[in-house]
Amino acid sequence: MAGLLALAVVIAARNVRTARAVLHPARQALKPLGDATLANRTDAVLRTRDGLTLRGWYVPSRNRAAVVVLHGFAENRTQMLFEAEALSRAGYGVLLFDSRGHGESDGDLVTWGDREREDLRAAVDFLSARADVDPSRLGVLGFSMGGTTALLEALDDPRLKAVAAAGAYPSLVADTRYSYGKWGPLSVQPVLWTMRLSGVDVDAVDPMARLCDLKGRPLLLINGDVDAYAPAFLQDAMFQAACEPKAYWVVKGAHHGEYAKTAPEEYARRLRDFFAAALLGGS
């Protein structure tokens, strides 16, 4: 009995340390950009309503529409250069930035979509004030944590007219159970407790429960069929929970985030076609 109790303590302590690590990831330096990459970019500074300064780049719009591009956990804006290039070449304004606690932005707590909603709201505020952008033609594309953030904020911000989420998780509880569920509640609950004690509203990070609140705004879900971090059963459940108009592209042979590596031309085309139909009336 004492041995089982000791094992339980070890498992719980290990998962508390894991949770602290995912709340405070090491920052990744921005990859250097060549002169031809996002050639017309300018530095962008965003101010969130809870007092943080976020840093990024903006490429002006040539078609009056614009898309916010959100990176994933423990990364920065340079993770999404392929997507930004594909959209900017098609004429969209593109805003990509480092979310809180990442890259060159303020903050030291990553909340897995909870407070990151404020980051996206600041980005929408920025685009809505741009002279080159029609504020009725705004969309968002997010990957992984950025995808979940995109879904969460879009549910409450009708200014976002189209949402594309790649490798997103349907809820933080579901993702935690999948990632840390080897020992059931013994390994899952310490992670959730640690997040809650750090100020994360775990239960609020549950876009799947409200996906129909997009109320007719188009949704595109993307996932790799061999993605170990965003498994098919969770992605399928999220798609089934959504209301029309919706689309779901499963990228054959793609691991987490490998859409551009596995099917670059089709990935770029699907993004262009989705936002054209949603923001430009299919033009």
Results as ranks from 00 to 15, higher is better:
6 A>C: 09
7 L>P: 09
8 A>T: 03
9 V>W: 12
9 V>S: 12
9 V>G: 09
10 V>D: 03
11 I>L: 01
12 A>V: 01
13 A>Q: 03
13 A>W: 09
13 A>F: 08
14 R>C: 06
15 N>K: 14
16 V>R: 09
17 R>L: 14
17 R>F: 10
17 R>W: 10
18 T>I: 15
18 T>D: 14
19 A>P: 00
19 A>G: 00
19 A>C: 00
19 A>D: 00
20 R>K: 09
20 R>V: 05
20 R>N: 06
20 R>T: 05
21 A>V: 06
21 A>G: 08
21 A>P: 05
21 A>E: 12
22 V>G: 05
22 V>K: 08
22 V>R: 12
22 V>W: 12
23 L>V: 08
23 L>A: 04
23 L>H: 03
24 H>K: 03
24 H>I: 08
24 H>L: 05
25 P>K: 01
26 A>N: 14
26 A>W: 14
26 A>T: 14
27 R>M: 11
27 R>W: 09
27 R>H: 11
27 R>F: 07
28 Q>G: 13
28 Q>A: 15
28 Q>V: 15
29 A>F: 11
29 A>Q: 13
30 L>K: 13
31 K>S: 15
31 K>E: 14
31 K>P: 13
31 K>T: 14
32 P>F: 08
33 L>S: 02
34 G>C: 05
34 G>I: 01
35 D>M: 12
36 A>K: 10
37 T>Q: 06
38 L>D: 14
38 L>C: 10
38 L>S: 11
38 L>T: 10
39 A>L: 07
39 A>I: 09
40 N>A: 13
40 N>V: 00
42 T>N: 10
42 T>R: 15
43 D>L: 14
45 V>C: 12
47 R>P: 09
47 R>G: 12
47 R>C: 02
47 R>I: 01
47 R>F: 08
48 T>K: 01
48 T>G: 02
48 T>F: 07
48 T>L: 00
48 T>W: 00
49 R>N: 15
49 R>I: 14
49 R>Y: 13
50 D>G: 09
51 G>R: 00
51 G>W: 06
52 L>H: 05
53 T>F: 06
53 T>I: 10
53 T>L: 11
54 L>P: 08
55 R>Q: 10
55 R>Y: 12
55 R>M: 10
57 W>F: 12
58 Y>R: 07
59 V>I: 04
59 V>Q: 04
60 P>V: 05
60 P>A: 06
60 P>F: 04
61 S>W: 08
62 R>W: 13
62 R>Q: 14
63 N>I: 06
63 N>V: 05
64 R>W: 11
65 A>T: 01
65 A>F: 04
65 A>K: 02
65 A>E: 04
65 A>G: 01
65 A>D: 01
66 A>Y: 04
67 V>T: 02
67 V>D: 04
67 V>P: 07
68 V>N: 04
68 V>A: 10
68 V>G: 07
68 V>Q: 07
68 V>H: 06
68 V>W: 00
69 V>A: 05
69 V>H: 03
69 V>N: 00
69 V>F: 05
70 L>M: 08
70 L>E: 03
70 L>N: 02
70 L>F: 03
70 L>D: 00
71 H>D: 01
71 H>M: 04
73 F>E: 02
73 F>R: 00
73 F>V: 01
74 A>E: 09
74 A>L: 11
75 E>M: 15
76 N>I: 08
77 R>G: 04
77 R>F: 03
78 T>Q: 08
78 T>G: 06
78 T>D: 06
79 Q>L: 12
79 Q>E: 13
79 Q>D: 07
79 Q>A: 13
